[in-house]
Design a protein around this nucleic acid. Structure first.
Lengths: 157, 157
DNA sequence: GCCAATTACTTTATGCATGAAATGTTCTTG
DNA sequence: CAAGAACATTTCATGCATAAAGTAATTGGC
């Protein structure tokens, strides 16, 4: 009967914990690296693709809107951390990639980021972390599959 | 040795799951109730305090800035969901509270919200939900205590 | 009772986020 | 090959979020 309440309570706790950690990360990024989480996310995605990503690929990976990425890329590129490259054979597209300076800057930020997380989650043992991550993974996979079924159904209409 | 990696992985999964659910809630709120999560949060806080809250109390409860609440309150009050009341004896302060219309509107939103959460977390049993919530609670409490010690230390400087 | 510090709130400037419209390019198809 | 559909990106309008500055009222120490 109170299963719904249990789930809502879980959701509220999840939200509180994640928002708390996220807020601390934002503060540290701003104070210690003069940047923001969205900028960090963009640079992180680019660092995993040294050859660069098209704007649309980037917004797809980060699951944000196209217009959003435009602005963040503009600001990062003004600071020389990122550059827009023409795509030979398609004048519509541009590829965004880290500059040398961007790579160096991100390396420092990423190391700090990992250290902060490790410190904030010190209260969680390695085993617990693995167990919870696995559970969340299973849950996310189930939700994903559900989403897909929904889309197929919509298409069939 | 890889404890740090385990914790970072846990964090990334947490972030992904929470952002995913949050995004779906935002979409549903927008499509089905023509509102947003921040507006919902404000109305939710006010519904727990029928006598109303001062602007500063509200921003404290929601952990957002003062300036932020001003704008949300402006828009909600334009729609007649919320009203600003003068505080007798302190002309600086105003109390914000739900109007009758706001109460009715929020009741509908809150019920839908609970149903959505329950549906999205259907894959989590009641027992698992309680167990995870408890763990998160313990973790949050530990982090809170750590924060407090930090502040005391800062004061002592 | 005065005035300096504090408190309550709003305003401003900046950045992030969205959806929708606009611009220009490429592809498709009759 | 000439529409026109599809695609890649930017621009625009709106809202949320912050920090910092501004306005006004209250409080506390003298």
């Amino acid at each position: 009967m109170s299963a719904a309440k249990d789930r809502v309570r879980l959701w509220l706790r999840l939200l509180k914990v994640v928002r708390g950690i996220e807020q601390e990360l934002r503060d540290k990024l701003r104070r210690e690296h003069n940047t923001t989480l969205p900028r960090f996310d963009v640079m992180s995605a680019l660092s995993r693709h040294p050859e660069g990503l098209k704007m649309s690929q980037l917004s797809g990976v980060l699951r944000v809107s196209n217009g959003n990425v435009t602005g963040i890329a503009d600001r990062l590129s003004e600071e020389g951390l990122v550059e827009r490259m023409a795509v030979p054979g398609d004048r519509r597209a541009t590829v965004l990639r880290l500059t040398k300076a961007g790579q160096a800057e991100f390396a420092a930020q990423a190391q700090a980021h990992e250290d902060w997380i490790d410190d904030m989650l010190k209260g969680v043992s390695s085993e617990d972390a693995r167990a919870m991550a696995e559970r969340l993974q299973a849950f996310a996979a189930a939700a994903e599959a559900k989403e897909d079924r929904k889309k197929e159904y919509a298409h069939a209409q």
